[in-house]
Computed example of a mutant assay.
Amino acid sequence: MSGAAFARTEAGGILLDIRLTPRGGRDAIDGVASLADGRIVLLARVRAVPEKGAANTALATLVADLFDLPKSAVTVASGHTARLKTLRIAGEPAALMARAAELSA
C-alpha cells in the first residue's frame, strides 16, 4: 500500500489509525492492513496487557520512539478501550506525514 493512508493531518500534528494487539510478545509495528470496511490501519503490537491503560501507554511510547518525539507528543484521541485506535501526534504535520509514509514502505 502506498503512502500513509492510515494517517491524516490536522492543525498542529497528525492522526494515525492503528489496530493494536496487546500481549503481543514484543513492542513493534507489523505493517499496514486494510480492514473489512476498507479502512487502512497501521498494525501494532505491545507486550503490555490491556488493563488500566497499560497497553495504550506502551503504544504511545512505541509511536513516540518511532517518530523520535517525546512521549508527551503522542496521545490516544479515540478508542481507549478498543483495538482500533486513533493516536494524535503533535508536531509539524508535513514532517510527521513524511515519517508516517516511511512506516508504510
Rank of each mutant, 00 (worst) to 15 (best):
T75M: 06
T81H: 14
A48V: 01
I40G: 10
L66D: 02
T61L: 13
L96W: 00
A94Y: 05
V41Q: 03
A82N: 06
I29S: 14
V49R: 13
A5Y: 01
E51F: 14
A100Y: 00
R26Q: 14
L66K: 12
P93A: 05
G13P: 07
I18Y: 12
H80M: 13
E102V: 12
V63G: 06
V46G: 08
G25I: 01
I29T: 11
F6R: 05
R39T: 15
L16A: 07
L20W: 08
L69T: 03
T86E: 02
G3H: 04
R99E: 04
A90I: 00
L66T: 02
K52G: 01
G12K: 02
A100G: 07
L35K: 14
P22S: 13
E51I: 14
P22E: 02
T75V: 08
A11K: 09
G24R: 02
F67A: 04
P70Q: 06
A82Q: 15
M97E: 03
L103I: 08
A82I: 00
D37W: 12
T57F: 04
L96Q: 00
E10P: 00
S34Y: 07
L66Y: 10
A28F: 12
L103E: 03
I18T: 07
A94D: 10
S72E: 04
K71I: 09
V76E: 03
